[in-house]
Simulated assay, not measured.
Amino acid sequence: MCHDLAAALDIGGTKIAGALVDSSGRLLVRARRATPAGRDGAAVMGAVAEVLRELTAARGWARVAAVGIGSAGPVDASAGTVSPVNIPGWRDFPLVDQVRAVVGGLPVVLVGDGVAMTAAEHWQGAARGHRDALCMVVSTGVGGGLVLGGRLHPGPTGNAGHIGHLSVDLDGDPCPCGGRGCVERIASGPHIAARALAAGWRPGPDGDTSAAAVAGSARAGDPIAVASFDRAGQALAAGIAATASLVEIDIAVIGGGVAGAGELLLAPLRRHLKTYAALSFARDVAVAPARLGADAGLIGAAAAAAGARGLWAVGG
């Protein structure tokens, strides 16, 4: 039997997705569960186990050589544990051991969800061909990952590039991570919506108060909604400029649900980046939308597993 597939998990605050992935990045089998309401630790692991059992029962499982996990973070790849900010029931949770017990002892590789998205976009997406890149997930939270010198750079614990918890407002609002004024505290979907509501924005008749609803109002010209996206773009620009100054990236790729707002977010981001990234080696950083959409976490988790196990070539 040829062991030429990787299994992938993408774990976040709203959904748990799984797939069997081949060496071209195709998702051959999919499984999905909603992250349980309340995000109780045992219930979340139960949903993960359901996804895994669906995959292990699928045709093709016998070809799986390794399992990759992209999880909301922070994660500790060296210990195999996760402590996602948006899953309060998991603190130092032994996710790798728990997954390994379900999949029969296959090798399991853990990275943060931002690193997984970065692996995907460098392999198959907007960062392909770039030697130095920052890729970001802007959604319920804000995560990220780095490609340096043409290779994925997850760092010792799998969290390198976690731009969401860079502080860009030293006297800003407290963040659940323990910092203040973090990029995530300003640019994530829930905070875009909360800021608009606090400033006087009102939802439509359906009562939708999500960032997507704010984006709809912004497209219609609502100045409060436009201002909330502008503030998010400013925070992202400050974080990207700081990263560019530190490690000399040449592209920032923006994905995740909030990035679906397109130019409502990217236009102010690019405008603010011109102000923040003024040094000669940082001012030419390109900003591009991610190409792989909602599948990026799964493709990247598979790529991380494949790269770590020498299963396929996954360089961009």
Rank of each mutant, 00 (worst) to 15 (best):
V183G: 02
N159D: 15
L170N: 09
A305R: 04
G262S: 08
L106D: 15
R291H: 12
S245N: 15
R100P: 14
G204V: 05
L266S: 11
V102M: 04
A72W: 03
R283C: 11
A49H: 13
S83D: 13
A237D: 09
A212W: 03
G141Y: 02
S71C: 15
N159C: 14
M1G: 15
L55W: 00
G207S: 08
D132L: 07
V21T: 12
G114H: 05
G164V: 10
A79H: 11
G189P: 11
V82K: 06
C182Y: 03
D206I: 00
Y276T: 08
S71W: 05
G172T: 03
A17F: 05
A43H: 07
R63K: 05
I69C: 12
A296C: 10
V109C: 12
N86M: 05
D284H: 15
A290L: 10
A199H: 11
R195K: 09
A199R: 14
A313W: 04
E54S: 14
A282I: 07
D40W: 06
K274H: 06
R128A: 15
L166M: 13
P176H: 02
C175F: 01
G68Q: 06
V51C: 08
R270V: 13
P203A: 01
A187E: 01
L265C: 12
G255I: 08
S24K: 13
A211K: 03
G145L: 04
L5I: 08
L55P: 14
E50N: 07
R53T: 06
P268A: 00
V285G: 13
A308R: 09
G150P: 05
L146S: 08
A294M: 06
D40G: 14
V226Q: 11
I186M: 01
A306R: 05
L269G: 14
G207V: 09
E248N: 15
G25V: 04
A313Q: 10
V99N: 07
G179M: 10
A294S: 10
N86I: 07
L134R: 02
V168Q: 00
G297V: 02
E184Q: 12
G310T: 04
N86D: 09
W90T: 10
V82Q: 06
A72D: 10
L95S: 12
V247N: 06
G150C: 03
A133D: 11
A126T: 11
G25T: 06
P190L: 02
P36A: 08
E248L: 14
S139V: 07
P84H: 00
F229E: 03
